[in-house]
Simulated assay, not measured.
Amino acid sequence: MAAKFTHLLKLSVGTETVDDLAAWQATAHDRWPDGQPRHVTRMWPKREAEILAGGSIYWVIKGFVQARQKVLRLEEVIGQDGIRRCAIVLDKRLVRVEATPKRAFQGWRYLKPEDAPRDLSGARAQEETLPLDLQNALADLGVL
């Protein structure tokens, strides 16, 4: 029987494109000794074992799930304020996924594997993303 796993869903606040997210994460070597990108959050996921059993973090950018990264591990980080936080350590590789509309939400959410957008394959992964207004129009029509 395959291991039960789950994913995380998170807004990429302040990011306009997947390339913006990649560029910001490329500076991880300035912030973390191992150079792996991290997302630091106040809450520790209660479903840690399921996330670490094969889960990814799916990034919502400008109202659409557009990319994912494999979650490598969770680390405790103590902020300058003395508060314990969770650093979600991510694979450096960003995988583009089929753009899927998603309304804004606070924090992160769990995402069942069967509800996760599919990875874009081959040449499609290199395609430019559609302009936001066109993505919204196609989503309203049920095409995206």
Results as ranks from 00 to 15, higher is better:
residue 3 A to M: 04
residue 3 A to W: 08
residue 3 A to Y: 02
residue 4 K to V: 10
residue 5 F to M: 00
residue 5 F to D: 02
residue 8 L to V: 00
residue 9 L to T: 05
residue 11 L to N: 15
residue 11 L to P: 15
residue 12 S to M: 09
residue 12 S to F: 06
residue 14 G to D: 00
residue 15 T to S: 15
residue 20 D to V: 00
residue 23 A to M: 07
residue 23 A to Q: 04
residue 24 W to T: 13
residue 25 Q to R: 04
residue 25 Q to K: 07
residue 26 A to G: 10
residue 28 A to R: 02
residue 29 H to R: 13
residue 30 D to K: 15
residue 31 R to D: 12
residue 33 P to V: 11
residue 33 P to Q: 12
residue 34 D to A: 03
residue 35 G to I: 06
residue 36 Q to P: 05
residue 40 V to P: 03
residue 42 R to C: 11
residue 45 P to H: 09
residue 47 R to V: 03
residue 48 E to M: 06
residue 49 A to Y: 07
residue 50 E to H: 08
residue 51 I to D: 09
residue 52 L to M: 03
residue 55 G to I: 08
residue 59 W to G: 09
residue 63 G to Q: 01
residue 63 G to V: 07
residue 64 F to N: 07
residue 66 Q to W: 04
residue 66 Q to F: 01
residue 67 A to W: 08
residue 67 A to G: 09
residue 68 R to W: 10
residue 71 V to K: 06
residue 72 L to F: 03
residue 72 L to H: 04
residue 75 E to C: 06
residue 77 V to Q: 14
residue 77 V to K: 15
residue 78 I to R: 06
residue 80 Q to F: 12
residue 80 Q to S: 13
residue 81 D to G: 07
residue 86 C to L: 11
residue 88 I to Y: 00
residue 93 R to F: 12
residue 93 R to W: 11
residue 96 R to H: 08
residue 97 V to H: 03
residue 98 E to N: 05
residue 99 A to F: 01
residue 103 R to W: 14
residue 104 A to M: 13
residue 106 Q to V: 08
residue 107 G to M: 08
residue 108 W to S: 11
residue 109 R to Q: 15
residue 109 R to A: 11
residue 109 R to H: 15
residue 110 Y to H: 02
residue 111 L to K: 09
residue 112 K to F: 09
residue 113 P to G: 04
residue 117 P to E: 09
residue 117 P to A: 05
residue 121 S to D: 14
residue 123 A to G: 07
residue 123 A to C: 11
residue 126 Q to T: 10
residue 126 Q to Y: 12
residue 127 E to A: 01
residue 127 E to W: 03
residue 128 E to S: 14
residue 129 T to I: 11
residue 131 P to N: 05
residue 131 P to M: 00
residue 133 D to V: 13
residue 137 A to L: 13
residue 138 L to Q: 06
residue 138 L to Y: 04
residue 142 G to A: 07
residue 144 L to D: 10
